[in-house]
Design a protein around this nucleic acid. Structure first.
Length: 265
DNA sequence: CATCTTGTTACGTT
DNA sequence: AAACGTAACAAGAT
């Protein structure tokens, strides 16, 4: 499920637990989502600390607790966050449960591509500090974007948009949505975009990010009816503008849908 | 049964 | 060294 706006939606779902202490942690340390960390540390250190705040950057989530504890989450392909009652007992794919007096904060992920990280220290963990600037921020300039595309010039622009080091939070459907609205063929090589196309791409990208955050993050509402979003997974998907059948082809290993009229190659 | 999936990452090659 | 392509990870839906 999760790209930029969906990740922000899931972050907010745990907000009910803000300011409250963790009483117990339930987890299975052998699950793949705990790869690379000592899951036992969570069980040992989190109980007794207060959930103070949280933040999303692209697809990364950071939850901050008292006692200088930091919990990082990546939702992978199928991860979700939700809230259950205080005596909740975890189901098959509920890999991490933070129990509080009045509720439980649950991380669920059937496919196990998600990831849990844990850090103790005065400052946020290294992996968080070094993340690229948000696409909706001032720091994401057109020049910065153009430089990134130049460095990955041999990649189709669709493939480049999926690189989190340059476009944090963009996933498969957002990349297609952006290219469709910018009227760019997804197979165009990244170093073949002219100045006009770069400007259009930059503006469109920021618009799609802002709009997705506005529509989806508060309550998981669908984007507006006229977005490519609603057509791209249908067998008989058509371009919302000219009703042409969408073309589909894997690019960078991901199914890509585009309109052959609006986005000629 | 075969094929598909809104994501990364390890690994080998260029 | 950096960029690139592919396979792998895992589970559920169609």
């Amino acid at each position: 499920v999760p790209e930029l706006a969906e990740v922000e939606y899931y972050r907010r779902r745990w907000d009910g637990g803000l300011g409250q202490r963790i009483t117990t942690v339930k987890l299975h340390a052998a699950k793949r989502v705990f790869r690379g960390i000592m899951a036992r540390e969570l069980e040992k250190l989190l109980p007794g600390s207060k959930f103070q705040r949280s933040e999303a950057r692209g697809k990364q989530l950071l939850f901050c607790f008292s006692n200088h504890l930091w919990l990082g989450l990546h939702l992978g392909m199928t991860g979700t966050l939700r809230v259950e009652g205080p005596a909740f007992s975890p189901g098959k794919h509920d890999h991490l449960v933070l129990c509080q007096r009045e509720r439980s904060l649950v991380f669920n992920d059937p496919r196990l591509f998600g990831r849990v990280r844990f850090h103790q220290g005065m400052n946020p963990p290294e992996w968080w500090v070094n993340l690229p600037p948000a696409l909706t921020s001032k720091a994401f300039t057109k020049a910065k974007m153009a430089g990134f595309l130049q460095r990955h010039g041999k990649l189709p622009v669709k493939a480049a948009l999926l690189l989190q080091s340059g476009f944090p939070g963009i996933g498969n459907w957002m990349a297609d949505e952006i290219l469709w609205r910018a009227r760019l063929n997804p197979l165009t090589l990244s170093n073949r975009l002219d100045q006009g196309q770069l400007l259009t791409l930059w503006r469109t990208l920021r618009q799609v990010c802002r709009s997705a955050l506005n529509h989806i993050s508060p309550d998981f509402s669908d984007p507006p009816r006229d977005w490519l979003f609603h057509q791209r997974w249908k067998r008989d998907g058509r371009c919302p503008i000219d009703r042409e059948h969408l073309r589909r082809q894997p690019i960078a290993g991901r199914t890509t849908a585009w309109c052959p009229i609006c986005q000629p190659g």
